[in-house]
Design a binder for these strands. Structure first.
Length: 577
RNA sequence: GGGUCUAUAGCUCAGCUGGAUAGAGCAACAGCCUUCUAAGCUGUGGGUCGGAGGUUCGAGUCCUCUUAGGCUCACCA
């Protein structure tokens, strides 16, 4: 599509001594539609031209050539305001959107570039709670966003499958493990014995020693410990996969901490060769004062490794195996310092690509005044949250069924409830900037009005309902031309088209800042504007056949924009609700 | 104490590289279903953008200082 802003910049350039690029970056979108669609502020020119901004704007308004897509050029105080022709713009946008379909807002900016996204990364044998939802949902959205922009993506689930807690688990299982329960509810059972271990260990410190021995045996590859560890891992993964499947989350690589463990000696050797490793309080550390960071421990005083060393090993591994453009870690903010240290160590090792490693942090999910704690047991399982949202959705659907006599059968109702319920959760986790902490609230989670996934999905379903009616009547709204759009162009229609046309820009910004909410807001604006349009302008009930077709086409474009946008967030649409 | 993030309407949050009268949603109040799904739409009230200086033609946005809170600061991950 024609870049209106660029055309305007070129036109201004003919009258002003300034580079097109600079003019382009100065052009902005006015805060109100009454001020036009694009604006050029003339304040900066007043220095070089030695004239008042108002005068410059007025002079410019008189000299500007008339561009075909412009309706009008106005001078308003120090601004030059450009008004574009609505009907032509709506026509172009609608046509283009329908042509692009589910590739709307895509680009080839990522061609030939690989982006790694590490997300979810739950700990084996621990419940999957709402805290994990944040990284899983944001990571999944980022993967889809980069994918849409043409990047080759690799989805990494850096499983927490290593460490001393496995010694404890093995120890606990051997004493209190219940085989039947383990098969039935693996994580529940593993958590039970894990908690029991901690309780017992308070009285009996020998347990800790025993656990350390089991972990040592695990590291040394003793068959019994290995077998148990593998079993715990497999059972946990099986249970996680249920949630992943439900959420449409997939991975290309499940290499966790254990995978990188045997790659640490090489890191240690490289650091030694470069004289970066120094002893401090018995531990081997890399000093990072040149980065204004505290030292990074590579080997503990007992000679064993630590998570920082594993993450450095992972960086090296990923550099060698994927020639990445970006290596993104979707991990909570509390680990910000850890990643700065890891990346700094990698850089000191001479790994150039360390600068392309990005920690994408996010706030804590808090529960009123307390923190979630697995050991305390005050957690909300993600599964329970999903089920709760699905149940509430189903309740609303049944109520609508009675009031509205929708002819949905049981199967369809369950399917819709599942999709809408999950969408509500996904939406809530990516509707705001990542850095803020989320105070978990059932009220907010179950608020299906206004700024929410059900709102957007409802809009989509409404749109599809109209399109179904049009199709049933064999109304052909596929053949479009400018004549059909002659009478289109009221404020709602114009705004809707502008927002649809802006979807790609919002995807780009979301990727640039690794903030899916930028896309969420765009989609929500599209939905809100459509609802306004829907309420103010009859679509099917219209005497003017051309207007009817044009509006149907705009409806069609709206469904494409919403569906494509939601897909990038991992949200599925429903045809009715 | 150092690092870092946050502070905008009663609540939850936007405000993208400084630009025109600071915007949404929720909650409150008042309306709209004999026309396309009321999980919707319209309207009203509600703000000294934590505080103080500064830079600028122009600051919620940039700089300095300051207040409050979250997270974090070596052998857990």
């Amino acid at each position: 599509m024609l870049d209106y802003k660029l055309e305007i910049a070129k036109a201004i350039n003919k009258n002003v001594d300034m580079e097109i690029d600079q003019i382009y970056s100065m052009i902005e979108i006015p805060p109100q539609t009454s001020m036009g669609d694009y604006a050029f502020p003339c304040f900066q020119l007043s220095k070089t031209l030695r004239k008042a901004p108002v005068q410059i704007a007025a002079d410019l308004a008189g000299k500007m050539e008339k561009l075909s897509f412009l309706k009008e050029i106005q001078q308003n105080s120090g601004f030059l305001n450009f008004f574009i022709e609505p009907s032509a713009f709506i026509y172009e946008t609608t046509k283009q959107t329908i042509i692009e379909g589910d590739r709307l807002g895509s680009s080839n900016e990522g061609n030939g570039k690989t982006v790694l996204v590490e997300y979810s990364s739950p700990n084996i044998a621990k419940p999957f709670h709402v805290g994990h939802a944040f990284t899983t949902i944001i990571g999944n959205a980022l993967y889809r966003i980069y994918d849409h922009l043409g990047y080759k993506t690799v989805r990494l689930n850096h499983l927490g499958d290593y460490g001393t807690q496995f010694g404890k688990l093995i120890s606990a299982y051997k004493q209190w493990g219940n085989e039947a329960d383990l098969e039935e509810h693996p994580i529940k059972e593993l958590l039970r014995i894990y908690v029991k271990f901690h309780d017992e260990a308070k009285e009996n410190p020998d347990l800790e020693t025993e656990a350390r021995l089991h972990f040592k045996n695990l590291e040394d590859g003793k068959p019994e410990e290995i077998a148990l560890w593998e079993r715990f891992r497999d059972l946990s993964l099986k249970e996680f996969s249920i949630i992943y499947k439900r959420l449409g989350v997939e991975f290309d690589d499940l290499n966790g901490e254990s995978f990188y463990s045997d790659k640490i000696p090489e890191i240690v050797n490289i650091l030694k060769d470069k004289n970066l490793l120094v002893e401090s309080d018995g531990a081997q550390v890399v000093m990072l004062e040149d980065y204004n960071l505290p030292p990074c421990i590579i080997l503990k005083s007992d000679g064993t490794t630590i998570y920082a060393s594993r993450d450095v090993a992972a960086v090296l591994y990923r550099i060698r195996n994927y020639n990445f453009y970006k290596n993104i870690y979707v991990v909570g903010n509390p680990q910000a310092l850890h990643f700065r240290q890891v990346f700094a160590v990698a850089e000191k090792m001479g790994l150039e690509d360390a600068k392309n490693c990005i920690h994408v942090g996010f706030g804590l999910v808090k529960f009123a005044n307390m923190k979630f704690s697995t050991r305390e047991g005050n957690i909300i399982l993600l599964e329970d949250l999903l089920n709760e949202c699905v149940a509430k959705t189903l309740e609303i659907i049944r109520k609508n069924q009675e009031e509205r006599c929708t002819d949905m059968n049981e199967e369809e109702m369950l399917d819709v409830a599942e999709k809408v319920g999950l969408a509500a959760v996904i939406y809530t986790f990516c509707k705001n900037g990542r850095d803020r902490d989320i105070v978990f609230s059932w009220d907010e989670m179950l608020d299906f009005e206004g700024d929410s996934a059900p709102y957007v999905l409802y809009t989509y379903a409404r749109c599809q309902s109209i399109i179904r009616k049009a199709n049933a009547l064999n109304i052909d709204y596929a053949k479009l031309n400018m004549d059909v759009f002659a009478n289109v162009g009221n404020d709602d229609e114009f705004m809707l088209a502008k927002l649809i046309a802006g979807l790609g820009e919002s995807v780009r910004k979301a990727a640039e800042s690794n903030e899916p909410f930028m896309l969420v807001r765009q989609i929500t604006s599209i939905a809100r504007t459509f609802n306004k349009f829907y309420n103010n302008s009859p679509i099917m009930n219209n005497q003017d056949e051309n207007l009817k077709k044009a509006r149907l086409a705009l409806c069609n474009a709206t469904t494409i924009a919403i569906k494509t946008g939601l897909q990038m967030l991992g949200i599925q649409t429903v045809e009715r609700m």
